[in-house]
Design a binder for these strands. Structure first.
Length: 644
DNA sequence: TTAGGGTTAG
């Protein structure tokens, strides 16, 4: 869009506004100042309409200050109505500068894709002789450019800023930097910051640096963002919160927690946003102790427990293995929204507590909350993990027919997984082939895992062909497929697959498990020898092997799908990362302590049966979160009833 | 009339 192009706003808008002409119930005295103060305190759209009518009736609308306040109340109050405000503006014979700024700002902040409207108005304002852009005009126009990521227009506006001499104004500067940062022009953004005469300790300088950091994160330039943060002479709580939330949102969970700890060490008080920002990182890492600390901190510091912080806590307790506590937090919340319900239902599903997940879904419906498509992902996931195939089909149909929600690939993913786990491979295949969205890696992975579980290579290979055509770069799917072939002894195909992976530079995520002891996260990969207590860990693993064999453990070497000697297979199995993490947990905690393990991949069959025995032999509850769900091992039994 | 937040198939 070119700001200098001719724009005929008048023809594009409703020229005959219907303005109400009611008498207000309580008629304020008709002086400009009392009308303005009534407008400022008006609470509803109805009040506003009546005061507007009064202004017209008494002729006071002709007073530019009154008209400006009618406009401001229309578009920037809590009960804003942009279309109404636009009609008010178009009625003004000669809007003053304040009114232009008000409407430009309202468009730049609105959600309905209106930033371009802001720019159109600004270009009209430039041609207007009675109102010149001022220091209040530019922040909004620049914000509109930033939101539309319109660099060409942004540069033109910035040109006007310099021409009219507003470039030293703190608000204008902030928004100029933000405009460049949002458009990805970090060089320009940084130049402006460096050129500014602000003291590095000043509040404005902190804001500018926060914006630059945000810009680097948008571009995925995490290291640059971190460097700017580390070098800041002064940091506000918003700077710290920004780093935590951006790290967590980009998958840098450990880094998010690290910043959170550093903030604490430097004596910066956490606030509500800090907690909401760090909790998702804690959830993903399964760092229960830290999560509990955050919960206690919120209570001790009387941080408001609303639906948002409540959802984050429910999610944290669910993903960190304490589902009962998640339920307790949920039940204690003063307010719940659709996300809170989704989080609770998804959490119960993750723990295999399908019956309760479905009960909560019913409660949600009874409470009058309209189910979102996300909550159905939780419901279908619950059915899938509990083998409730008929219920799953029925909920899928209800979602489509009663709630009129279009199934997304995630819903099909749940259905394929559900049918596959239950051994209904042909029905699952039919769904993969006929579903209206293109199957992705995840769908194939669920399907291939089901074929492997049920030993059906024929269907597996048929679908595998489609998967190969995807030219996927997802390492896990290749490994799954090659494992499927390996379980059939098809070593030639395995070799071919490995070669394809090499050619496409596909890498598999290495299996990795972690355990938190005294607030420290300890990470282990398969056959890991890097931990400072490696010697003790491996002595423990040897002891475990002996005790398990005494208890009747037979290694399930069919799980090791490499073409290697049986004996080597046995040792490979015993050094899987989750077993190493458990050995470390056993030597680092007192007897009877529950162990919480998180694994990035799905737990293998041999580990699953070993951990059942370990829980019995060592008298420990062991809670393992793998890629798809929780397993609660106790006294030789797992909560998943071996259906996973 | 500048900056910050929660759920989602394997």
């Amino acid at each position: 869009m070119n700001l200098n192009s001719n724009i005929n706003i008048a023809t594009s808008l409703n020229p005959s506004p219907c303005l109400p002409l009611l008498s207000p119930p309580t008629c304020p005295s008709s002086s400009p100042s009392s009308l303005i103060s009534s407008l400022k305190t008006s609470k509803t759209l109805r009040d506003l309409h009546q005061l507007h009518a009064l202004a017209i009736k008494t002729g006071l609308f002709g007073d530019p200050l009154v008209a400006a306040e009618v406009l401001r109340s229309s578009v920037l109050s809590e009960h804003r109505d942009l279309r109404y405000g636009r009609r008010v503006f178009d009625q003004m014979p000669e809007p003053n500068c304040f009114s232009w700024n008000t409407l430009i700002r309202a468009y730049s902040e609105s959600d309905g894709g209106h930033p371009s409207e802001s720019l159109l108005l600004f270009s009209r304002m430039l041609l207007c002789e009675t109102a010149r852009p001022n220091r209040y005009t530019f922040p909004s126009v620049l914000k509109a450019c930033a939101r539309a990521e319109a660099i060409q227009e942004g540069k033109q506006v910035h040109g006007q800023v310099i021409k009219l001499g507003w470039d030293d104004d703190a608000f204008v500067l902030t928004n100029s930097v933000r405009m460049y940062a949002c458009c990805g022009f970090m060089e320009d953004a940084r130049k402006l910051v460096e050129k500014s005469s602000l003291s590095p300790e000043s509040e404005s300088s902190v804001v500018l640096h926060n914006i630059v950091i945000d810009g680097y994160f948008r571009l995925g330039m995490v290291e640059e963002a971190r460097q700017v943060f580390d070098r800041m002479a002064n940091k506000s709580v918003i700077s710290w919160n920004g780093m935590i939330s951006k790290f967590a949102q980009t998958g840098y969970f450990k880094e998010a927690i690290c910043v959170f700890r550093k903030m604490q060490l430097e004596g910066v008080k956490h606030n509500y946003v800090t907690l909401v920002s760090v909790l998702p990182a804690i959830s993903r890492l399964g760092a229960l102790e830290l999560g509990e600390w955050v919960h206690a901190y919120a209570e001790k510091n009387v941080i408001e427990m609303d639906d948002v912080l409540g959802s984050a806590l429910v999610d944290m307790y669910s993903k960190c293995g304490n589902i009962d506590k998640a339920v307790q937090v949920f039940e204690g919340l003063p307010k719940r929204n659709p996300i809170t319900w989704s989080t609770m239902i998804g959490g119960l599903a993750l723990h295999g507590r399908a019956g309760e997940a479905l009960d909560y879904f019913q409660r949600m419906e009874k409470a009058g909350v309209v189910p979102s498509d996300v909550v159905f992902i939780g419901v279908l996931n619950a059915c899938s993990h509990a083998g409730l195939v008929d219920e799953g089909r029925s909920y899928f149909n209800r979602m489509v027919n009663i709630y009129q929600l279009s199934p997304r690939i995630e819903h099909y993913g749940c259905m394929v997984d559900m049918l596959g786990r239950a051994g209904l491979l042909e029905e699952a295949e039919e769904l993969v082939v006929n579903m209206p969205v293109k199957p992705d890696d995840v769908i194939y992975k669920a399907f291939l895992a089901a074929c492997k579980k049920h030993g059906d290579a024929e269907i597996g290979m048929r679908v595998a062909k489609c998967f190969m055509e995807l030219v996927s770069h997802d390492g896990d799917s290749y490994v799954l497929l090659s494992n499927l072939c390996a379980s059939l002894g098809e070593w030639d195909t395995v070799a071919k697959l490995r070669l394809t992976m090499k050619e496409l530079e596909v890498r598999k995520d290495p299996g990795c498990s972690w355990i938190t002891i005294d607030g420290m996260i300890h990470e282990f990969v398969v056959e890991d020898y890097t931990h400072p207590r490696t010697k003790e860990i491996y002595l423990m693993l040897e002891e475990m092997a002996v005790k398990l064999q005494e208890a009747g453990y037979v290694p399930d070497t069919a799980q090791v799908l490499l073409n290697i000697e049986e004996e080597k297979k046995e040792s490979t199995l015993f050094y899987h990362s989750e077993k190493i993490a458990i050995a470390f947990g056993l030597i680092s905690t007192s007897s009877g302590t529950t162990l919480h393990i998180v694994k990035n991949l799905r737990i293998c069959g041999d580990c699953h049966s070993s951990i059942k025995l370990i829980s019995k032999v060592y008298g420990r509850r062991i809670i393992v979160r793998d890629r798809s769900r929780f397993h609660h091992f106790e006294d030789g039994v797992c909560s998943c009833n071996d259906y996973w």
